[in-house]
Design a protein around this nucleic acid. Structure first.
Length: 257
DNA sequence: ATGGCTACTCCTAGTAGA
């Protein structure tokens, strides 16, 4: 089973690239973030014609998550329970072939210490609370997404320059590690000691060309599922060429039980 | 490096992203 995650930075802007990538890589499951579109305008028919079902949870302009699958999807969750009045489409989950699949888009945080930053930390804490009562943790579960956190220095092209800054601050890393401590495995790290592989490069300043990347997109598997992970990679070629997202896909392969 | 992209929208200029 091939499971992927990709922050596409607008599903409509990225549709041609997504479709050709789907045909080339044939993932079984794809978790998308930053789709930036309401559900009625999600390009479901184009994706379904390539053999995928779509589970979507979107809003105009901002955020938006989706799960594409070659196998039937049983919807599980849309958003964090008890969301405040301000709705943000950042979490979607479904069950696919016995695996609980989560697509998450963690808030960016804007600036260390800002209200947006506090919201990011609180969001991770609430997410932890949700997972803590999820029985799937003991079974087959995968949490894919843009976590907007580079967990360690080896996830950063220049750790000294980034130290303490947004995406790398101690508080963000601690909030994420408390989620991981519930019993999740970073499957990329099973196969790559680092530095990298990076998943995001700023659009500005030729960051990709200069190698100024971060690893902020992750595939986290429950202990039981992680045992079956035989391969994990990033598709950095998707950062090249015509109209790329600023993120690239992360792809993991799991052997059958 | 922190600018100097990119994509969005009921303000094509202002906001957000990371």
């Amino acid at each position: 089973m091939r499971i992927a995650t990709w922050n596409v930075n607008s599903i409509r802007a990225r549709l041609p690239r997504l479709l050709s990538w789907l045909e080339r890589e044939s993932p079984d499951v794809v978790c998308l973030q930053e789709t930036k579109v309401v559900d009625e305008l999600f390009p479901s028919s184009e994706i379904e014609s390539r053999g995928y079902s779509c589970l979507v949870y979107g809003q105009p302009t901002y955020n938006g998550v989706a799960i594409l699958s070659r196998h039937p999807i049983k919807p599980l969750l849309r958003g964090l329970p008890i969301e405040p009045d301000h709705v943000e489409c950042r979490l979607l989950a479904g069950v696919i072939a016995g695996v609980s699949v989560f697509s998450v888009y963690v808030p960016n945080g804007k600036e260390v210490g800002s209200p947006a930053y506090e919201h990011k930390i609180a969001w991770l804490e609430r997410f932890r609370g949700l997972l803590d009562v999820t029985p799937s943790l003991q079974n087959d579960m995968v949490i894919c997404g843009d976590f907007n956190v580079a967990p360690e220095d080896r996830d950063v092209h220049n750790p000294e320059r980034w130290r303490g800054r947004l995406l790398c601050s101690d508080e963000e890393r601690r909030a994420l590690s408390e989620v991981m401590d519930l019993g999740l495995v970073d499957v990329t790290r099973l196969h790559h000691p680092g530095p990298g592989p990076f998943t995001w490069w700023d659009y500005r300043g030729g960051a990709f060309h200069r190698g100024w990347g971060l690893r902020i997109d992750h595939i986290y598997a429950s202990l039981r599922l992680a045992e079956r992970c035989v391969k994990a990679e990033t598709h950095r070629e998707e950062r090249k060429g015509e109209r790329p997202s600023d993120h690239v896909p992360v792809v993991a392969d799991f052997k059958a039980r």
